[in-house]
Write a protein that binds this DNA or RNA. Structure first.
Lengths: 231, 231
DNA sequence: TACACGATCATAGTCACACTGTCAAGAGTT
DNA sequence: AACTCTTGACAGTGTGACTATGATCGTGTA
């Protein structure tokens, strides 16, 4: 196990340097010379490993994205309850973005709006993970946790859109040094959405809400019976 | 009024051409020569009006953004109720993005992640409008429409993040010809969020929700009184 | 030690494109 | 006609991605 200390190949050195510089100055404003200098190699070596500057850009998120999302996919099935699963998936995203600011800057600011990136293995991994989230929401609708008429695509966009929006603003605000408090917003976010889409029936042990207009009718029912609620 | 038919200045022609080409191929992949040819002017004329290619990019959303958001700001105060106000603001965004696909592609895909764009009048207008939305949410919290412990920043990110996410995916999907159904998702979106943050108390005239545990006590009250709800 | 071979470097060169500068050709005005 | 302002044509510069080539370094092998 001691030989697991990787000696950092030149390829890794180049990608590490590129990640820093791309995240800091943006893809277009970064030069190959700058990256090769930072990595301590020559320009030619960069082209030895990566055909073009854009190939280098696309290669960077590949390792981390695949590793993370494959790990996520393995864990999720063992979590019981769709709400817990959804929470776990979103926590994965938030922690990934939060603990790798350069990575998230790259993905959210440079890659997400690049059409060629969409034909990349890294993006396939992202898409797959996004699909897992969608399936969880569908499962929640199917098993009665969420309202039958919920739009799963909308709900997914609410989750992913909100989280990405928060991170984009964090990056654009110009202070990615300070740890963001986005993880603390996960539970409030979940609470709002779940509260909004949760089926309001008395089949699970959750809190039950009734419209006031129905309260009159309910009052009579409650009077006749002892107070037991049978569906 | 007949002389209101603008003869389309060269500046406008250039910006129109640039909008099309930037939206289609992206800022970096578009060349000045291409734009000037499309506009029917020479390269030099482009530089006559716009110092740099980026200045041209930033100039494009200026008119439409300012016009739209200033119009929005004038209308909002006349709408009663924070929920209506919020709905109106979001509808403004959606209709703006939906009826100007090129504009929304430019803003959402190219400009939002550009740091220099943030120091631009166009972005100031966007920020101002975003602040109006935040104020509405705060107003809703203050007047008891929404829960006291709602995080207005989070709620705003939920609205804007979701809408932007939906539009970005619409653009990236590669079929911006077909009219998107995003406007139809506004009410479901509002329903979920409002449902999640609405104060469940009996202080405003809106629909009222009660916890089931309270229904027993309510039943007695309703029996004694005729049914009128005085606060 | 000597050799071979692959990896890396240094360097020079090509090409595309943003941007500049110059000057001449219209168009409008006096 | 003279004057001015706008526009176009075009040549030129600088930067940076990418290519091509030969030198050099490091390592394993005879």
């Amino acid at each position: 196990m001691a030989d697991k200390i990787k000696p950092k190949t030149r390829k890794d050195l180049i990608m590490d340097a590129a990640l820093c510089i791309f995240a800091e100055k943006g893809f277009q404003n970064a030069t190959i010379t700058e990256i090769s200098k930072e990595a301590g190699v020559s320009d030619a070596t960069v082209y030895e490993y990566f055909g073009t500057k854009e190939d280098l850009l696309f290669a960077i998120p590949e390792r981390i994205t695949k590793d993370t999302f494959e790990a996520s996919a393995k864990v999720i099935p063992y979590i019981k309850g769709v709400e817990g699963k959804i929470r776990a998936i979103l926590l994965f995203y938030i922690q990934l973005y939060q603990s790798n600011p350069n990575y998230s800057a790259l993905v959210l600011l440079q890659l997400m709006s690049n059409k060629r990136f969409r034909q990349t293995p890294a993006h396939t991994a992202i898409r797959k993970s996004s699909h897992v989230l969608l399936d969880c929401i569908r499962e929640g609708i199917a098993d009665g946790t969420f309202k039958k008429d919920s739009n799963p695509y909308l709900v997914r966009s609410m989750f992913m859109g909100t989280i990405e929006h928060l991170f984009i603003h964090w990056h654009m605000q110009g202070m990615p040094k300070r740890k963001p408090s986005i993880a603390e917003l996960l539970d409030p976010l979940l609470e709002i959405v779940f509260d909004g889409i949760r089926a309001k029936k008395a089949d699970s042990g959750t809190t039950l809400y009734l419209k006031l207009e129905d309260a009159g009718a309910l009052a009579k029912i409650l009077q006749k019976k002892g107070g037991g609620t049978t569906s």
